[in-house]
Design a protein around this nucleic acid. Structure first.
Length: 418
DNA sequence: TCTGGGGTCCTAGGACCC
DNA sequence: TCTGGGGTCCTAGGACCC
């Protein structure tokens, strides 16, 4: 049977989430900032028109923001995650064959649907908007890469009504000719440089490029992209989310850290968060990497990392925190102003398959029961239990100065109507 | 002054084996 | 001492994604 992929993409997702609970924002320029209110990570269409770029530091667009009364929000991850699951739940009523690709995107497999695909796309769009308040765009085609392109066109076109179907479309070549090669899924900055050098500027030219040349210059990944542009599907729908291979917790600090004690506190708190994530997934880590860094934007940047292997794979927060602090002792350099640290856990295995260590001095059964108790309490009561190593005052804590209410996940932040 | 966070996959090269 | 071919596994770094 012929493959049909539909890519459903939420429009300006974070900005749209803010609008759902704050209708006054409708029609106004809205931006959402990253942690510490650093960079712009989402923009409403009105904000895009003003020339506010994706990923630019907030201070660089301060003037535009002030002059045009742009509404600015800190990231509200609790809200966006919950809204995302509402959107995905809605989408899964249209077909069980769904791959949740990111917080704001999903692929559906519509192969074998005998209805008019465009009509079905319009129905999806209407339903998601009605049930969740989030506007989405639908792109359909025979491969994921082409569905991405269809979606892009649906976003830009005024005629399309938010739905573009490129399966068996007479417009496919024209669509590819009008798509810059840089906008093709899987083609990043470095690849664009190589392609431009060879005179390949559009998706159409990439589709028609010599495949052995592509294999040589861009490897198998580039080759897959070209096949996908030719309508040969190389990336199937991934329904069962693959098991995680690594877990990272890293944050820039709300203010730079000079003292080793504070650096340990911050890093310990990331380690305990990493432990929570690990246990949520039912995993244990064999390897932990700790890194610290000063600002990326100074010449004398100091970056260093250290990796430890555990004698037996673990998900015990006490062990993770202890090792993280030992790493900091090795990595710390006096006189540096640290901006960020992080924990990367790898060598992940299911907690059911942990290879025990003969000389293990930790009582694993006891530690496991302790972690379960802590997790259970923290999940029920909005995380009241904290580890002493995380510190109390936490002056380094990430700043969210303009965060909206967590309307859908916190009782005391519910929207009030008067 | 102020510059995000969390992932995956591929490739090349080294170590090691028969 | 030199000669050859074929293979696996691991790691670091590159590139890309949202």
């Amino acid at each position: 049977m012929k493959e049909v992929f539909a890519l459903i993409d939420c429009n300006n997702f974070y900005a749209s989430c803010e609008r759902v609970f704050n209708p006054k924002l409708e029609g106004k320029p809205v931006v959402v900032l990253s942690n510490n209110d650093g960079c712009v990570v989402a923009r409403s269409n009105e904000a895009k028109v003003l020339g506010i770029g994706m990923g630019v530091p907030a201070f660089e667009v301060k003037n535009i923001i002030e002059k045009n009364n742009v509404e600015v929000f800190s990231s509200n991850y609790a809200l966006y995650a919950d809204m995302s699951s509402r959107v995905m739940e809605t989408l899964s009523t249209f077909t069980p064959d769904i791959e949740i690709y990111s917080i704001d995107e999903a692929f559906l497999n519509l192969a074998g649907f005998s209805c008019c695909l465009t009509d079905y796309g319009l129905k999806i769009r209407k339903t998601v908007k009605k049930w969740t308040g989030v506007p989405v765009t639908v792109g359909m085609a025979g491969t994921k890469t082409l569905a991405k392109i269809a979606n892009r066109i649906a976003k830009k076109s005024n005629k399309a009504n938010g739905v573009v179907d490129l399966t068996d479309s007479a417009y496919l070549s024209r669509a590819l000719a009008e798509t810059e090669v840089a906008k093709v899924w899987g083609v990043g900055y470095m690849t664009v440089l190589k392609l431009k050098k060879a005179g390949i500027e559009t998706a159409l030219a990439l589709r028609d490029a010599d495949i052995s040349w592509i294999r040589q210059k861009l490897g198998v990944v580039g080759m897959r992209t070209v096949y996908e542009l030719r309508g040969i599907s190389c990336y199937p729908l991934e329904q069962n989310p693959s098991v995680k291979k690594s877990i990272t917790v890293s944050r820039s600090f709300g203010k730079p850290i000079e003292k080793i004690e504070e650096l340990k506190e911050a890093t310990a708190s990331y380690a305990s968060r990493a432990g929570e994530k690990l246990r949520q997934e039912g995993l244990a880590a064999s390897v932990m990497t700790v890194f610290i860094t000063t600002s990326r934007f100074i010449e004398s940047r100091y970056f260093n990392s250290h990796t430890v292997k555990f004698p037996a794979a673990t998900s015990d927060t006490i062990e993770l925190v202890h090792n993280a602090c030992c790493c900091i002792d090795r990595l710390y350099r006096k006189g540096c102003l640290f901006k960020k640290s992080g924990i990367i856990l790898s060598g992940l295995i299911s907690e059911k398959h942990i290879q025990k260590n003969l000389f293990d001095r930790v009582d694993r059964g006891k530690s496991c029961r302790l972690m379960q108790a802590v997790d259970a309490i923290n999940s029920r009561l909005d995380s009241p239990l904290r580890w002493a190593a995380d510190g109390l005052k936490q002056p380094w804590k990430v700043k969210f100065n303009k965060r909206s209410h967590r309307y859908t996940t916190h009782w005391d932040e519910l929207l009030e109507v008067s």
